[in-house]
Simulated assay, not measured.
Amino acid sequence: MSRFSANLSLTFNEVDFLDRFQAAARHPFSAVEFQFPYAFEPQEIRQSAAEAGLAIDLFNAPPGDTFGLAALASPEEFQESIAQAINYAKVLKPKKLHIMAGIADVTSKTTVRYVENIRWAARQLQKLDILVVIEPINHYSVPGYFLHTLEQAYWLIERIDHPNVKILFDVFHIQQIHGNLTRRLREVHGAGLLGHVQVASTPDRHEPGTGEVNDAYIFQQLEELGYEGLIGGEYLPASETSAGLGWLNL
């Protein structure tokens, strides 16, 4: 089975979203992921995935207008957004849900709100056997994003204190935040917190293998670590998507 999933929010965008499943199925992907499915009915997404023979590995909770809600929204607003995600998840059956933090200063108020909101979501999603993943995002791409280092993610997860929360390790973001990718990858995996992996080239977010990172070495490291999850290609194709899929053979 392929170890890669295609991110259909960014790739195969030469065709309409529901047609991207069939486009991805023509290549060695065993699953797909996407960011925000809420413009479509979950049943039509499920049908497109089933007809293409592709599992759905991950999607994001609703982001609101602030690149995420977890550090900003009241419990009522946040829980309403997660209820919408759960309605989709019951149909789409992903393995993971990425819950975004939002653009917010790191204060005692936003920290407490984030911890309490993510803990609540982790409890609800555990009932569906869906893992919550949280992602440090670099401040070059998203200035002011609340969750912006691995150390912060470790600290928050310790306070959330729920086993259904792990880290989404995005090579594009971690390279720009920290560098030292191999050490950081081993660190997250060794802590038992590696929930999902995404790849894109740095600094331009194009196909893996076209930037400053040796993605083939990262794939090798993941294999040696025994990472059993999929690697999501969340990148902006430099040209037509199919023309740039040589990275699948790295």
Score class of each variant (00 low, 15 high):
residue 205 R to G: 09
residue 47 Q to A: 12
residue 91 V to S: 00
residue 231 I to H: 01
residue 223 E to I: 07
residue 153 A to H: 11
residue 3 R to V: 15
residue 123 R to K: 11
residue 209 G to K: 05
residue 165 V to I: 12
residue 61 A to Q: 01
residue 18 L to K: 05
residue 160 I to V: 12
residue 174 I to C: 04
residue 4 F to C: 04
residue 223 E to W: 09
residue 137 I to F: 10
residue 165 V to T: 04
residue 244 G to H: 04
residue 130 I to V: 15
residue 233 G to Q: 04
residue 248 L to I: 11
residue 9 S to T: 10
residue 95 K to S: 10
residue 95 K to L: 03
residue 161 D to I: 08
residue 47 Q to G: 13
residue 250 L to I: 05
residue 126 Q to G: 13
residue 110 T to N: 06
residue 132 V to A: 07
residue 154 Y to C: 05
residue 139 H to Y: 12
residue 38 Y to D: 06
residue 78 F to S: 10
residue 110 T to W: 07
residue 24 A to K: 01
residue 133 V to Q: 02
residue 75 P to Y: 01
residue 47 Q to T: 15
residue 160 I to E: 08
residue 234 E to D: 10
residue 240 E to K: 14
residue 31 A to L: 02
residue 196 H to P: 03
residue 239 S to R: 07
residue 122 A to H: 01
residue 31 A to N: 00
residue 151 E to S: 13
residue 156 L to H: 10
residue 94 P to Y: 07
residue 72 L to S: 05
residue 246 G to Y: 00
residue 205 R to L: 12
residue 213 V to T: 01
residue 207 E to D: 02
residue 58 L to I: 02
residue 77 E to F: 00
residue 120 W to E: 02
residue 98 H to L: 12
residue 146 F to Q: 02
residue 178 H to F: 13
residue 67 F to N: 14
residue 242 S to Y: 04
residue 65 D to I: 07
residue 36 F to D: 14
residue 186 R to Y: 09
residue 228 E to I: 11
residue 167 I to E: 01
residue 247 W to K: 00
residue 125 L to W: 00
residue 140 Y to S: 11
residue 22 Q to A: 15
residue 125 L to K: 07
residue 84 Q to E: 09
residue 2 S to Y: 05
residue 147 L to C: 09
residue 161 D to L: 07
residue 65 D to A: 14
residue 26 R to H: 07
residue 6 A to L: 12
residue 15 V to M: 11
residue 5 S to W: 00
residue 40 F to H: 15
residue 59 F to Y: 12
residue 126 Q to F: 00
residue 227 Y to K: 03
residue 138 N to P: 13
residue 140 Y to R: 11
residue 137 I to R: 02
residue 107 T to Q: 10
residue 181 L to E: 13
residue 224 E to T: 08
residue 130 I to T: 04
residue 157 I to W: 02
residue 187 E to M: 08
residue 225 L to P: 01
residue 129 D to C: 08
residue 38 Y to R: 06
residue 174 I to N: 01
residue 2 S to E: 04
residue 32 V to S: 11
residue 133 V to P: 04
residue 222 L to D: 02
residue 212 E to Q: 11
residue 43 Q to C: 09
residue 193 L to R: 09
residue 35 Q to H: 14
residue 134 I to P: 03
residue 152 Q to D: 14
residue 232 G to D: 00
residue 4 F to D: 00
residue 78 F to N: 01
residue 78 F to D: 05
residue 204 D to S: 15
residue 73 A to N: 04
residue 6 A to N: 10
residue 54 L to I: 15
residue 13 N to C: 14
residue 90 K to M: 14
residue 91 V to I: 14
residue 111 T to R: 13
residue 195 G to C: 00
residue 26 R to V: 14
residue 186 R to I: 06
residue 203 P to C: 08
residue 183 R to Y: 13
residue 142 V to K: 03
residue 174 I to E: 06
residue 32 V to L: 02
residue 228 E to K: 08
residue 5 S to R: 02
residue 106 V to Y: 14
residue 167 I to W: 00
residue 15 V to P: 03
residue 153 A to C: 10
residue 64 G to D: 09
residue 99 I to R: 07
residue 157 I to E: 04
residue 130 I to P: 05
residue 121 A to E: 11
residue 109 K to H: 15
residue 235 Y to L: 03
residue 164 N to P: 11
residue 27 H to A: 12
residue 77 E to P: 09
